[in-house]
Write a protein that binds this DNA or RNA. Structure first.
Lengths: 350, 350
DNA sequence: TCAAAAGTGTTATCCTTACACCCATGT
DNA sequence: ACATGGGTGTAAGGATAACACTTTTGA
């Protein structure tokens, strides 16, 4: 990051002699109007794996004096334009201040506009216009000492229906699917059309596809779709166990979905592991994130044959069984494979 | 979309008795500070396929009186909070006003922060703080009459090095690769580290991976990576042929990359096709977007065997050869396959 | 008649999946 | 001894890739 062009992708690169700035500003009507009052908030979904479970970093909202850890929000803060050069940089600073953690891997998730009318205790109804940009970050939970007030929440307590590591969670068959079917029957959803969009599906079809009902497979990446369905159907109160700020639960879903997708195509698992690890540890982390899809013997071959890892030459004894070779991420795979990642299938049948 | 919960994913869903609004506002420091002056701009990368080439919709910047079509920007506009309920809705309105087109498929791309210091003719140096949210949209170019001032730009004139439909474009071997190698030699880039991130690669490695140098395969989805490299290396002036606003070229790259990726996993190709089509037309559209990967005879089988399409029973005569059956998108595939799409490999060797 | 595209069929190859089995350690 | 995890081999099945060949139209 040394020259001007590097930082950008946005500044004009002198394609011609024309003043492109003017046109670009003009394109968005910059001359014609003033800026609007707008709050921009940044939020980080910091995911990790602890004790073979995925966890997400949470903090206490600043003003809450209650130290009981009952209330939690995702780390982040307001973006102050002018003071910060970039969104990512600002978010890193915010998180470091709030939790003491320096973020590593960081990737944009989504941008939402909230026009929540706040009924807070301080005023009648202040209309809060907020643009909220969220990011996914990955880190090694054990390597990171959290500041007091911050802690790791179990992702599968936030989204219990996503936990397939002990088979299909009972909550699906017992509670959610029946409730979704009842809700589907109560109408809604559009009629079939010729369009390819999945928004064109009826309620019952959406539920079936998202939750793998009726012989369909469970697509572990459709986390947000499932969350949105449960939200629409009003079922979230029935299953929420953790006191995480509701608006942030959907972000956790988005983060988990993105992580599950990325693990398959990029070597991001290693952001969640120590530098050296056994193949079994690697498998446990993959399973924590994806659910138990691939099994034992083949996983090793898969991961070794693709050149994702290389042996360190060391051994580990505290495995509970025969000592295991330790491995490390094999960096060269980035140069060899088009999509280096743990190519594990999902398709669990219902 | 009938009840409150439906619209959101953000509003609290009454998880407990607590006033979560307060905490959420609090989490972003809403009480403590006022809103900042900030411009939010929305931009649409509207992609389509015309004459077997991918095209992107462009308009004239509003204030340009020159009617020569020399200057082009992507459609979009400012987001006026309060007046609009959602970002997507606002963008649809903007585009409809500017170009007369009602967008169909719409999907968020990325959010960037620009702190461009404008050296316009109207003032000394107004620092424009702008948050820019971009979207990918897909439509059928032929079905849409554009308003005067709007037109379709050939995507492969904007990004010539992405056009593999007549084999590897010569500009790569002749101009870009040598220039990138020279640029790589001039230093920069970090040393190898144990991290899995691809940002850890050196210049020459990044170039090799992105552009498929040295026996490596060309990953057609890494459009933005390639653009960014060319930008960093200062090579864009050498290859830009179209007078599209520089800041928007990167968005086109992002859009094309996203489209290429989506085509493989979701049935979005059909957003680019008329309702009825021949298999060869379908293939041409896929090739326009991806480059010629899969070939003739097998493509049909692939697409038929996956249940993506179904015959209409009609025939078409003006094919230039033997009459062809026409097909339509088979909607049921959404309910059957986990990732319905044209599962075509990329891996073209260099 | 020829070019161009529509179609059908077959085979080789690779990758994944599943199963079977042996090895080394701690309790 | 046995439970737990480490580690190797091999055979069946499905999907893709490559090739050869026939059919039907328009120019």
């Amino acid at each position: 990051m040394q020259d001007d062009a590097t930082t950008a992708g946005h500044g004009p690169y002198e394609a011609g002699s024309r003043n492109w700035h003017a046109a670009e500003q003009d394109a968005i009507g910059h001359r014609a109007a003033t800026s609007y009052a707008m709050t921009v908030s940044l939020t980080a979904v910091v995911l990790s794996v602890r004790n073979e479970r995925p966890v997400v970093m949470a903090t206490r909202p600043a003003s809450v004096t209650d130290t009981s850890d009952r209330y939690a929000v995702l780390p982040g803060g307001r973006f102050c334009p002018g003071r910060q050069p970039s969104l990512e940089g600002a978010l890193r600073d915010e998180v470091r201040q709030a939790t003491g953690v320096s973020l590593g891997y960081l990737e944009q998730l989504l941008t939402d506009y909230d026009r929540t009318t706040t009924h807070s205790d301080e005023g009648p109804s202040a209309s809060a216009r907020r643009l909220s940009v969220s990011y996914l970050s990955l880190s090694r939970a054990d390597a990171i000492p959290l500041r007091a007030g911050s802690r790791w929440l179990d992702v599968y307590e936030v989204l219990p229906w996503e936990d397939f590591r002990s088979g299909r969670p009972e909550i699906l068959a017992d509670v959610l699917i029946p409730a979704l079917e009842a809700w589907s029957a109560s109408g809604g959803g559009s009629e079939p059309s010729a369009l390819s969009g999945e928004n064109e599906l009826s309620r019952i079809e959406r539920a079936a596809v998202s939750f793998g009902v009726g012989g369909r497979s469970w697509d572990d990446e459709r986390v947000v779709e499932r969350f949105d369905l449960l939200l629409e159907a009003g079922l979230l109160p029935a299953v929420s166990t953790v006191d995480l700020c509701p608006g942030h639960v959907r972000l956790v879903a988005a983060g988990l979905g993105r992580l599950r997708s990325k693990v398959r195509n990029r070597p991001v698992v290693f952001e969640l592991l120590p530098v050296e690890f056994t193949l079994f540890e690697l498998q446990r982390v993959v399973e924590a994130v994806l659910g138990p899809t691939l099994h034992k013997q083949n996983f090793r071959r898969l991961v070794e044959s693709t050149g994702l890892v290389e042996p360190t030459g060391e051994m580990r004894n505290n495995t509970g069984g025969r000592p295991a070779k330790t491995f490390r991420f094999r960096r060269e795979v980035l140069l060899e494979r088009p999509a280096p990642g743990v190519h594990v299938r999902s398709g669990r049948a219902a």
